[in-house]
């Protein structure tokens, strides 16, 4: 059993709101500097950067989960985690046609660039990524699970893009073991477990909020078991 210092919500330079400084190397260097040893990159509605960052993480000896941050029709943000790159990429491929054909306007939203390990720009993503998929909240959870992933509703306590603000309450048919929240969970959600993460858009923000997961190994099943507190496992939030 090991305790991982995890930041599971990090944007790369591909997210329009993410700094262009969020290259694979810069992300990994900042994670090392700040003592984060398990990370996930979670760009908006795309997984085009997960593999290159996973290679950088592996080279540095850091643990990694493949992730995305999906946006539902109701503008709820849901984090998705996968053990395998292929599952994450298949899910990303399946949702891409459900993203509206609205082009990104870099001057308004920011640049959306796929880069190599050293930060060289390989291509620009034409569709606006911070937009809603044509999937409801519950359909989004089901979609993530269908590809073998773990859905985690993002920043549920925030005024924008959180499930509570957008839908007024957690829909009854959409139970999740793990949710991301900066604040303690309300009494109605006591059966769920909270994690917190940085939602970093700049390298220096990585690890500013994190969760200590005590678990046997790095996998989404272990994350859920830590959330349930099974056999000495735990998930404990740390916000700076």
């Amino acid at each position: 059993m090991r305790t991982f210092s995890a930041d599971l919500h990090i944007h790369t330079c591909l997210s329009p709101c993410g700094s262009l400084r969020m290259s694979p190397r810069a992300i990994i260097q900042s994670a090392i500097d700040r003592g984060v040893d398990l990370l996930a990159v979670t760009d908006h509605n795309t997984a085009a950067m997960v593999e290159v960052v996973s290679h950088a993480a592996a080279a540095a000896g850091l643990d990694f989960l493949y992730g995305m941050e999906l946006q539902t029709r109701e503008e709820v943000h849901v984090l998705a985690y996968f053990d395998r790159a292929t599952d994450c990429l298949s899910c990303a491929e399946a949702i891409y046609p459900l993203l509206p054909d609205v082009p990104n306007v870099p001057d308004a939203f920011g640049d959306q660039v796929v880069v190599s390990l050293d930060g060289t720009i390989l291509r620009t993503e034409p569709k606006l990524l911070v937009n809603s998929l044509d999937l409801s909240f519950s359909e989004t959870l089901a979609c993530i699970r269908r590809f073998g992933g773990l859905p985690v509703p993002a920043h549920i306590d925030r005024a924008a893009y959180g499930v509570l603000a957008q839908l007024g309450m957690f829909p009854e048919d959409t139970a999740c073991q793990l949710v991301e929240s900066d604040a303690d969970l309300p009494p109605t959600l006591r059966e769920m477990t909270r994690m917190c993460s940085s939602d970093a858009h700049y390298p220096e923000d990585i690890g500013a909020a994190r969760t200590h997961f005590r678990m046997e190994s790095v996998s989404i099943v272990e994350l859920e078991r830590a959330a349930r507190g099974e056999a000495g496992r735990f998930a404990r939030c740390q916000c700076e």
């Binding site: 609205v102 306007v105 001057d107 308004a108 939203f109 911070v130 005024a159 924008a160 893009y161």
Partner: peptide, 13 residues
């Protein structure tokens, strides 16, 4: 009643 910063970008586009 949406106050998120993205309102400005959306208005522009």
């Amino acid at each position: 009643i949406q106050r998120h910063e993205n309102v400005v970008a959306v208005a522009q586009v």
